[in-house]
Simulated assay, not measured.
Amino acid sequence: MAKLIKEIRTKAGTKKWQVNGRRYGARPMRPQFPTKEAAEDALAKMIAARGAGLNPTRRDVTFQMQSDAFLKNNAETLAGRSLRSYASCLRVHILPRFGARRVIDINTASIKTLLTEERAKGISPATVSLIRATLSVIFQTAVDDGLVAVNPVTAARVGNRGRKARAAANQSVPKERVFTQKQIDAILEWCAARDHDLHDFVFTLLRTGCRPGECRALRWQDIVGNKILIERALDDRNVIGLTKTGGKRAVDLSPALKDVLRLRLLKRPGAEPTSFVFGNGTPPTEREMSRRFAVALDECEIVGHSLYDCRHSFASILLARGAALLWVAKQLGHSNASITLKYYAHFIPVEGVDYIGLLDERAADATEREEMKAST
C-alpha cells in the first residue's frame, strides 16, 4: 500500500511533503506542502471530509476491536438482555463480514450490501433492523472516539423507496396482537379462579401498560397515592436494572387496580415497603410468569399472544376510546409521542366523526362544548 505522505523534491530542488489524497477524493489529488506537519493536517481534513476518520494515529483500529470496547464499556449501563442481544447479533451477522476490517474502511455502501444480503437470506425485518441498530451504536462510538467523522449507518437504508419495502418496514402493532375485551374478561376470570397471583399480575399489566419486567420489579413503596413509580426492571435472568429506556416515570393508578393491590397487601401482613409486590420474597422469573400465562391462554383457547400483549392492549384500548396521545405516551414511558404514534396510530379512530364541522362552529358553542368536556 502506497504511503499517504511522502517526501519529494521539486524540479527546482525544493523539499516538499506530498499527500496522496486520491482515495479521499481530494482535489488536487496529490497536493504538496512545505512541512510534514502541514501535510498531516491536510490529510486529517481529507479524511474528515470523506468520513473515513479523523485520527490518523488510530487508523488501524478494526471493527472487532471497536465492538469489543463497546460491549466492555457498556456492560454496566445496558440491560443484560440488550447487551446479550448486541453480542449475539455481532457474532452471528456482523463480525464474520466486518470483524477484521478497519473501521475507517467500512462505508455506507458496504453496510447497505450487508443488510441487503441478510434480507435476501430470508431473515426477518426485525432482525435486519437489529443488525442496523447494532452497527449504528458501534459506529457512533467510533465517531465519539474520533475514528470517523460521520456515522456511515445513517444513510444505510435498504430499499426504503419501494412500496413493498415500506410495507415490510411498517412496525406498527397488528390488531391481532391486541386482546379483545372478551379475551381479557376470559383470562381474568380464569386467573381469578385458578391462579390469584397471576390475576393480580395480569390486571396490573392491563391497567398500567408497564412492561412485564417493570411489573415484576415493583415494590410496595413504589405505590404512592394514585401513582405507581416505575423506576427499575428485571431482566430475563431476574437481575434488577434500569428500565428499557433508562428513565423513570409515574403512571396513573386506576380505582379498580388500587382495590386489587390494596386487597393483595392485606393478604400479606408481613410485607415491608421494600418487599416485592409479586412473588414470595423474591420476584417471579420471566420464564415462570410466561409459563403460567401460557397455561391461562391455553385454558381460554387463546392463541398467538404473550404477556407483552397486555401492554399493547393497554395502549390500543385507550387510544381507541379517545385518550390523549401524549398522555398514553407518557404512561408507556415512550421518550417521544412519535414512537407511540408509529406503533398505535391505526387504533386512533378517524372515521365517523365530523371534524371538519368544527370549523363552522360558533365560538360560544365551542367554549360551551369544551366546558362540558372538561366537567365529564
Rank of each mutant, 00 (worst) to 15 (best):
F33D: 08
K330M: 02
L359C: 06
I240Y: 00
L234W: 04
V295W: 01
V158F: 04
R362Q: 14
I123K: 10
R157C: 07
T180C: 02
G122M: 03
L95A: 11
K330F: 00
P152C: 02
T116K: 13
S335R: 12
E299D: 09
A120V: 02
L229M: 13
A165C: 03
D195L: 09
E272P: 01
R287S: 10
T204E: 04
K45R: 15
R287C: 04
Y344L: 05
L332P: 00
P284F: 13
Y355G: 04
Q64C: 06
R91T: 15
C191R: 01
D360R: 06
A366N: 11
F179R: 01
D185V: 09
Q181L: 12
S124E: 14
W220E: 12
L297F: 03
Q18V: 03
H93A: 10
A75M: 05
A149I: 01
V251A: 05
G159Q: 12
L242H: 08
F63R: 12
L261S: 08
A337Q: 11
F63T: 13
V92E: 01
S335E: 12
N55E: 14
L90Y: 00
V173H: 01
L205Q: 03
T180E: 09
F63N: 09
T116F: 00
E351V: 13
D41N: 15
V328E: 00
R211C: 08
D309W: 08
F33M: 12
G281N: 12
R166F: 05
T282H: 09
Q66K: 13
T35P: 00
S338E: 14
V328M: 04
D222H: 15
A165H: 06
R84I: 10
K373L: 15
L257H: 04
I348T: 07
K36H: 08
A167T: 06
G352R: 13
R157E: 13
V143P: 03
K3Y: 09
A256D: 14
I131N: 05
E368G: 01
E371S: 10
E214Q: 02
C210E: 05
K244W: 09
L257K: 05
I123V: 07
L114Q: 01
D145T: 13
K6Y: 08
L78D: 03
A193K: 13
G209R: 09
G357Q: 05
V350T: 15
R27Q: 09
E189A: 14
F201R: 04
L71P: 08
D105F: 05
P349I: 01
V251N: 02
A87T: 14
A142M: 09
T127P: 00
D144S: 13
R211I: 01
R30C: 10
K3C: 08
D354W: 03
K15Y: 02
T141W: 05
L71G: 06
R216M: 14
N73H: 10
P56L: 14
G162Q: 10
V251D: 01
D252C: 03
V148G: 07
D185A: 13
